[in-house]
Amino acid sequence: MELHAVTNDTLPVRELIKQIKDIASEVDFIHIRERSKAAGELVHLVKQLLAEGVPKEKLIINDRVDVALLTNIHRVHLPGHSFSPKELRQKFPHLHAGVSVHSIEEARAAEKNGAEYVMFGHVYDTACKPGLQARGIKVVEEMTSTLSIPVVVIGGITPERLPELMHVDLKGIAVMSGIFAHPQPRKMAQTFSKKRKENPYEQAL
């Protein structure tokens, strides 16, 4: 099961670089999701990360295709309201694109439009989505059985909830505040990484 860390747009560039460097070896992918930062800041951020040794293959640029192109990053993640991945690859065949979805209908549409994977949320209650009801594990199970492309889930995921998720045919989990809002991001990334490698069937016995 892949572990995706998603930045939460609360840190200045210098601190964000430090945190990403600290967790890079513990996660499979790092989503740069910094909506309040200007394009120039994001380009600087990505270039600094690469210069500091963060593997290019682990970086995914959220929404900002221009930043991905300028920094030669080949993975992007699109919000559900964005253009289709199929259109994107017609212009830029080297790009890989996933799409955020919030329902099975949106996931089916994303698959039809050429998404290589979908990120579905929020699965559990989370402070990031106050007042919005969690969509729950049953919807995740239905989605994974319906789609032919991989599913990554996000929203309120904690290490304690991983055994339940590991019984579902998921490609991966994505964690935002659980890592980047924690006082010790590296320690939390290590905890998630260790937990996902445990055998869920042994835990069920």
Score class of each variant (00 low, 15 high):
residue 77 H to A: 08
residue 37 K to V: 05
residue 96 H to Y: 11
residue 100 S to N: 08
residue 119 M to H: 11
residue 99 V to G: 00
residue 49 L to R: 10
residue 116 E to N: 05
residue 44 H to K: 14
residue 110 A to Y: 03
residue 59 L to R: 04
residue 67 V to W: 08
residue 59 L to C: 09
residue 71 T to L: 00
residue 104 I to G: 10
residue 43 V to H: 04
residue 37 K to L: 15
residue 74 H to P: 04
residue 60 I to M: 01
residue 67 V to P: 04
residue 76 V to G: 08
residue 38 A to D: 14
residue 89 R to G: 02
residue 59 L to V: 09
residue 118 V to Y: 02
residue 114 G to V: 04
residue 53 G to S: 04
residue 119 M to L: 14
residue 67 V to K: 06
residue 110 A to W: 02
residue 69 L to F: 05
residue 119 M to A: 14
residue 57 E to R: 12
residue 64 R to M: 07
residue 113 N to E: 15
residue 45 L to Q: 10
residue 58 K to Q: 14
residue 63 D to W: 06
residue 39 A to R: 15
residue 101 V to W: 03
residue 94 H to Q: 15
residue 115 A to L: 06
residue 80 G to N: 13
residue 79 P to W: 09
residue 65 V to S: 01
residue 40 G to P: 07
residue 103 S to L: 01
residue 81 H to C: 01
residue 68 A to E: 05
residue 60 I to E: 09
residue 45 L to H: 01
residue 58 K to L: 09
residue 119 M to T: 15
residue 50 L to M: 03
residue 109 A to K: 15
residue 45 L to E: 09
residue 61 I to V: 12
residue 54 V to R: 03
residue 41 E to V: 08
residue 78 L to V: 00
residue 58 K to N: 01
residue 78 L to N: 05
residue 71 T to H: 00
residue 62 N to K: 00
residue 76 V to A: 00
residue 51 A to D: 12
residue 93 P to K: 09
residue 52 E to K: 12
residue 88 L to H: 07
residue 115 A to N: 03
residue 115 A to T: 03
residue 103 S to V: 06
residue 106 E to Q: 15
residue 71 T to Y: 00
residue 52 E to F: 11
residue 115 A to Q: 08
residue 51 A to F: 11
residue 48 Q to P: 02
residue 70 L to R: 09
residue 107 A to P: 10
residue 74 H to F: 11
residue 42 L to M: 12
residue 93 P to Y: 06
residue 115 A to I: 10
residue 74 H to Q: 14
residue 113 N to D: 15
residue 100 S to H: 03
residue 60 I to L: 05
residue 38 A to I: 10
residue 77 H to W: 02
residue 101 V to F: 01
residue 46 V to H: 06
residue 113 N to R: 13
residue 97 A to H: 02
residue 86 K to R: 15
residue 54 V to C: 00
residue 100 S to K: 07
residue 50 L to W: 03
residue 84 S to N: 09
residue 67 V to F: 02
residue 99 V to S: 01
residue 63 D to C: 03
residue 39 A to K: 14
residue 103 S to Q: 05
residue 94 H to R: 14
residue 111 E to I: 08
residue 72 N to E: 13
residue 113 N to Q: 15
residue 96 H to D: 06
residue 106 E to C: 03
residue 117 Y to F: 15
